[in-house]
Amino acid sequence: MTDLHHPDIDTLIEFPCDFELKAMGRHCEEFIDLVFNITQKHVPDASRENIRLNESKGSKFVSVKIKFYATHINQIHGIYGDLNEHPDVLMTL
């Protein structure tokens, strides 16, 4: 098993750093909560104050951006992995 905390893992991101992720799904409060809760699972000090929303033209969909302080790559991999496995998440960036 690979130790994702190991400093020799190849990444273009220098840690620690501010990181912003984006997830898209149907526009509802539950989706916003989903993105926040998954992020907070991997970054306990993530704040709802760091969430920005962008609704689609017809307000049917929303992109949720959340910025947080990442200390290692496995936080990012964990968040994206959990988001991409959830059926309500249509896309992540």
Rank of each mutant, 00 (worst) to 15 (best):
M1P: 05
D3N: 15
D3Y: 08
L4V: 06
L4I: 06
H5M: 12
H5T: 12
H6C: 04
H6G: 03
P7T: 07
P7H: 07
P7E: 13
D8F: 02
D10P: 06
T11H: 03
I13L: 13
I13G: 03
I13W: 02
I13T: 06
E14Y: 09
F15V: 15
P16D: 12
P16V: 12
D18Y: 12
D18P: 10
F19W: 10
F19I: 04
E20G: 15
E20W: 00
K22T: 09
A23S: 11
M24D: 03
H27W: 00
C28W: 01
E29Q: 02
E30N: 07
E30G: 04
F31W: 03
I32T: 09
I32P: 15
F36Q: 00
N37L: 15
Q40P: 03
Q40A: 13
K41F: 15
K41R: 14
H42R: 07
V43A: 13
A46R: 11
S47T: 07
S47G: 05
R48G: 03
R48L: 07
E49M: 02
E49C: 02
R52F: 03
R52V: 09
R52P: 03
L53T: 09
L53E: 09
E55A: 08
G58T: 09
S59M: 09
S59Y: 13
S59V: 06
K60Y: 05
K60F: 06
K60V: 05
F61Q: 13
F61E: 04
F61R: 11
V62L: 13
V62T: 06
V64A: 14
V64E: 01
K65I: 04
K67T: 13
F68D: 01
F68M: 03
F68P: 02
F68T: 13
F68I: 01
Y69M: 09
A70V: 01
T71W: 12
H72P: 07
H72K: 12
N74V: 00
Q75S: 00
H77I: 10
G78N: 08
G78T: 04
G78K: 05
G78Q: 06
I79A: 08
G81W: 02
D82H: 06
D82G: 04
L83F: 11
E85N: 00
E85P: 05
V89C: 14
V89L: 01
M91L: 11
M91F: 05
L93T: 13
L93E: 14
L93I: 07
